[in-house]
Design a protein around this nucleic acid. Sequence first.
DNA 1: TACTTACATGCAACCGCATGCACGATCAAT
DNA 2: ATTGATCGTGCATGCGGTTGCATGTAAGTA
Lengths: 332, 332
Amino acid sequence: MAEVPTISMIAKRLGVSQSTVSRAFSKPHLLRPETVRRVLEAAETLGYVPNQVARALSTGQSGIIALIVPDVANPFFPPLIRAAQAGADQQDFCVLLGDSAENPDQEARLVTRFTPQVDGFVLASSRLADPVLVDHAARKPLVLINRDIARVPRVLVDSHTGVMQAVAHLVELGHEHIAYVGGPVGSWSDHQRRRAIAAARAEHRLTVTMLSARPATYAGGARTVEGLVSSGATAAIAFDDVVAHGILAGLAERGARVPEDFSVVGCDDVLAATTYPPLTTVSLRCADAGDIAVSVLLDLLGGRKLGDVRYSLDSELVVRATTGPAKRGRAT
Amino acid sequence: MAEVPTISMIAKRLGVSQSTVSRAFSKPHLLRPETVRRVLEAAETLGYVPNQVARALSTGQSGIIALIVPDVANPFFPPLIRAAQAGADQQDFCVLLGDSAENPDQEARLVTRFTPQVDGFVLASSRLADPVLVDHAARKPLVLINRDIARVPRVLVDSHTGVMQAVAHLVELGHEHIAYVGGPVGSWSDHQRRRAIAAARAEHRLTVTMLSARPATYAGGARTVEGLVSSGATAAIAFDDVVAHGILAGLAERGARVPEDFSVVGCDDVLAATTYPPLTTVSLRCADAGDIAVSVLLDLLGGRKLGDVRYSLDSELVVRATTGPAKRGRAT
DNA sequence: TACTTACATGCAACCGCATGCACGATCAAT
DNA sequence: ATTGATCGTGCATGCGGTTGCATGTAAGTA
């Protein structure tokens, strides 16, 4: 493998100093256009490309941002990741991806390990404690997704509106007893959805049963069905689409038809958009969250002072085929 | 923002030289265990982490590998990405993620941009031309996933066995005319599945209709249903689970029941594992592919000479609920 | 005891680029 | 013509580690 050309090789070849070559790339306006041209030309013929690593060491800017998520394979994140990467790429930044496996210690490890080599962080659904996050935000630009901490820039994928709409939709269909099948403990999203359910209950005349899928997966969702049915509810709003599908499976196993006997509403709308049966679900702007988080982070890196940043991305119910009129009497 | 601790701060604090601190991390066997302990302890309390960028500059090794996929949000990739990241992390490598948006030019751009700052590449389902890949492989360690190019290290997620099993399964159920609903043109996976179908046809007495979902998505899958049904086939094997779900949707729209009227087999088993109805599908080892690709790459970086590396990960059919006995006469 | 030997540590020179400062040249204004 | 700006470029230093070599020290040998 041939020698990689460096700045000094070009400098020598042209009889100028290294600084001149360097400036030709980073601050061309300081040089005579003619000089810039000569340098670039020489660089071209030698196949020179500025070494990002060296540049990073001397400027302290790596051009890399870190994105840490609890689980890459959770359907909520891929669109977010993709959008984040695209947004970063557009401004010539690269994305270092970390998967914390839902584990705070692992997440802390990743943050520590990434810190010296990235310009900033996007932490999605962080499992870290508030003070820890505040602390990190103090030493390195940091944007949170789905964590609401004052004075730390954050983007919230707000399911409130959508969940309220879901409840209203079910009430309209005649449901008088619904259940919420929650997700991971300590999850900001779950907490938020519970509050939305509570708010909705106050507005309508209905009974609400609060349950939890443990774990918040397909299998966990299926397992809640027993409690779901025995509670007397005729409809369920699930923490996310995966849990909703689990509920669908559990229901089918008991011979209950959807939506004739029981209605199911999901949350996320990423799985729901590409699976059959078409799931009625709360559509979340998860891709937008990634995009916005990155753009806020890059603004921060650009030195813009932004005050207390708090984006809240609204949601909406998408009615498809898993909700229908309440059945008289109990399901099953 | 607090000062980030450097090697020299620890050195001063302990009254040792920078070299000693450096070696405590990179070559601890050269130091007295007691010294190593002291250094690590001091590092711990100061929160020191070796700066990878500086290390990269002097060693020429960044500790970063690039992983480029055509579409992060395609269900096939997230498990692969997660496994790759975990594998890299385990050996203290970070993963720079790129999404090429199925676009060869974009992929080429990413490769160029990443090249100076990564130690090697994993390219999953690359859309680049063979010679281009061979070329890149010559200048930087590179492992391919789902591209079979001689002398370039590669990991193939082999659906052959699983597809053969799927056909056999359908034949056993009495199907005499099946269809394959293919995916993206130029896709190695699609090509491979077509060959498996052809091979299977030779072994059984059956009619096969070859179709394509354009694009290879949920909607594209749904659109193929018309051709599917009019072809006279009673079962379909889809390029992937997403297309399979699309077919499910298209079938339902025409009032065809699954599996009573029509059988559907997917491919991937990532979506299928978390959705209802339980899809009969060819289970692929996509996570293993990520894991293995990274470990091969790291072996390469470790200087091991491996010869012509070609991993082929076998697949198997997982029978669930979308396949059943052939219906006499035509569907619908 | 003197001398080798192996081991533990320090010194200093990089790695490739960025950048503050100094310097000479050019040019306008007085 | 002299002076003060302005502009283009070079010099030298530093970013935070790594590493070959030198040095010092303790253990081993005769």
